[in-house]
């Protein structure tokens, strides 16, 4: 098992190298001259050239690349031109915000979608099956930013039961002591009830908006996968052996059906990371999506590179985790590698 993880990890190395090259090239090819942008509208050509030299943009591309890789190896992702902060620090403070939002959304969504899909498959044609169909259809037809805006309008503006959509915590509540950067976990660890409740309230709307979006693929995959497994020969054997329905559905059917669901879970997580950009904008969430969008608009290379790199590493890690979980569930996968 450990060997498998290590060899899988080794195959991730080329991906990372590829990502480094692509992010570097991509940001150089973007339209706009950052030196001109930061020199200001009234700057003289000399001033722009001076800034260009300071940023290292006057060097050739291969030279710039070597500098870039050297910086990466020493853990330096550069400095944001617009905020003047090191990109590493900014991403380190903003990533937990995005990750917390995405994970809460994913947990809520999986917690609803998987049981719903299982029940819909077990009781095919019943009301719960129809409910499942309605939820999945509605889920895919509603874009996240729309659900987000709708939620903010209904629950904050009309009903006034939700807090203002302005970030992770109400300004009058002080954030919990920094341990993991996840407000829910940190406040729970430090026993800070006020911060826990406050951040949960702030999370509720954006997380729900994202959860609804991801509900559809998960529930549909669970239902479809369960249906095909329930129709398979070994389920008939289990039933013919008189095994309790609970054993048949969970020990026999669900464990076999869960494999494609895990794959979908990984894909949905990727979707959600992408959808973060929109939700963070709507709810003024101080995550990395918002950070990247702002950087992109101002042709601020370093944060964009840092963002893409972080995301790529996240995806690679995620896929690694999925592979490992797959191997744990399905003994046949273990031999293949």
């Amino acid at each position: 098992m450990l060997g498998q993880i290590l060899s899988r990890l080794a195959t991730a190395v080329p991906s990372v190298i590829g990502v480094v090259i692509v992010t570097f090239m991509l940001t150089r090819l973007l339209p706009g001259d950052p030196a001109a942008y930061f020199a200001g509208l009234a700057a003289t050509p000399q001033a722009i050239a001076e800034i260009r030299g300071k940023l290292g943009l006057d060097k050739s591309l291969p030279e710039q690349f070597i500098v870039y890789v050297g910086d990466l190896l020493s853990g330096n992702l550069g400095t944001s031109l617009s905020t003047g902060q090191p990109v590493v620090t900014e991403i380190a403070t903003r990533l937990p915000a995005s990750a917390e939002l995405t994970l809460v959304a994913l947990i809520v969504s999986a917690g609803i979608a998987i049981p719903l899909g299982v029940l819909a498959a077990v009781k095919q044609g019943s009301w719960i099956d129809h409910l499942c169909r309605v939820v999945t259809t509605a889920g895919v037809s509603l874009p996240v930013f729309f659900t987000g805006l709708l939620f903010a309008y209904v629950f904050y503006y009309l009903l006034q039961i939700a807090p203002a959509p302005t970030g992770r915590l109400d300004i009058f509540v002080s954030p919990p002591t920094h341990i993991t950067g996840f407000y829910l976990i940190d406040s729970a660890l430090t026993g800070n009830g006020e911060a826990f409740w406050g951040s949960l309230r702030q999370l509720a709307l954006p997380a729900s908006a994202m959860a609804i979006f991801s509900l559809a693929p998960l529930a549909r995959m669970t239902r479809g996968s369960m249906l095909s497994v329930l129709g398979s020969d070994f389920i008939r054997t289990a039933r013919a052996s008189g095994l309790a329905p609970r054993t048949v559905v969970f020990t026999y059917a669900f464990r076999n059906a869960v494999l494609p669901v895990i794959t979908t879970l990984g894909m949905v997580f990727s979707f959600l990371l992408g959808a973060n950009v929109l939700v963070e904008t709507v709810f003024a969430w101080p995550g990395i999506g918002l950070y990247a969008v702002n950087a992109l608009i101002t042709s601020d290379y370093a944060p964009v590179q840092g963002f893409v790199l972080t995301m790529a590493v996240l995806y690679i890690t995620l896929n690694l985790i999925i592979d490992v979980v797959y191997g744990l569930v399905d003994p046949r996968v273990r031999l293949d590698t």
Partner: peptide
């Protein structure tokens, strides 16, 4: 009951 195709009649991951 004993079924045909014993390979598929057994739970593959148990």
């Amino acid at each position: 009951m004993i079924f045909q195709n014993p390979r598929t009649a057994l739970n593959p991951i148990r």
